[in-house]
Design a protein around this nucleic acid. Structure first.
Length: 202
DNA sequence: GCATCGATGGTG
DNA sequence: ACCATCGATGCA
């Protein structure tokens, strides 16, 4: 018989999945499927790149600036979305991880579109925009049925590197908290294969 | 292919 | 003033 929540396309992940450290969750997210139901449609993508942010001690984390209106959701229970606006243009989609109060979170940086969806999801700004994830989704509950994750049983081979774009983070700049699917060509940045349409010829 | 730069507005 | 980014531009 089918497990409950079996969708034919994977099993929906529940609260306990999110209640692991940011580092463990960031690694576990590679290969999972992000689903966003909006306006009668369903957008789905397979996550291939993430970064962990480990709370106030982590100088790269927004939570290191303290508990503010912006960072409040990170200090709450795991499994909520932390969505923030940056560079005057982009939304960033994160998932709150770990124990309540620890303010761990995982930035979802890249995914492969599914179901024939033709979209470039290689980069956190592009991913959030194309998934239709907005600041108004800050605090959304991923154990709900609008924005959530599926486990298909994928076991991708995972690469690790320092995080991108955090040169201000002191001793944390080189900490290897970025995770990615070694076999995916949708990974952004270093180690990723942003391979174009194959124009290697002259 | 790689380095540099400007857009654009919330945040502390 | 800075920023968990991106696309355009210039040059090789």
């Amino acid at each position: 018989m089918e497990p409950r929540n079996r969708n034919g396309r994977g099993r929906k992940l529940g609260l306990s999945f999110y209640q692991q450290s940011g580092e463990a969750l960031a690694r576990a997210l590679i290969g999972k499927v992000l689903v966003h139901r909006v306006e009668g449609k369903q957008l789905r993508g397979r996550i291939v790149e993430t970064e962990a942010y480990l709370g106030p001690a982590d100088l790269a984390s927004h939570s290191s600036k303290g508990r503010t209106k912006r960072t409040e959701v990170m200090f709450g229970r795991a499994g909520y979305a932390y969505v923030y606006f940056i560079y005057g243009m982009y939304e960033m989609f994160n998932i709150v991880a770990g124990m309540t109060g620890h303010a761990h979170a995982v930035l979802v940086r890249a995914a492969e579109p599914l179901d024939g969806w033709d979209a470039d999801l290689s980069g956190p700004g592009k991913l959030a925009t194309r998934f239709g994830i907005l600041r108004s989704d800050n605090g959304a509950d991923l154990t709900g049925d609008k924005l959530f994750l599926l486990d298909r049983g994928d076991r991708p081979e995972i690469g690790v590197s320092p995080r991108i774009g955090i040169d201000y983070a002191g001793e944390w700049v080189d900490t290897p908290l970025r995770f990615f699917d070694l076999a995916s060509n949708a990974v952004s940045g270093p180690k990723g294969r942003t391979r174009g349409a194959g124009k290697t010829r002259s």
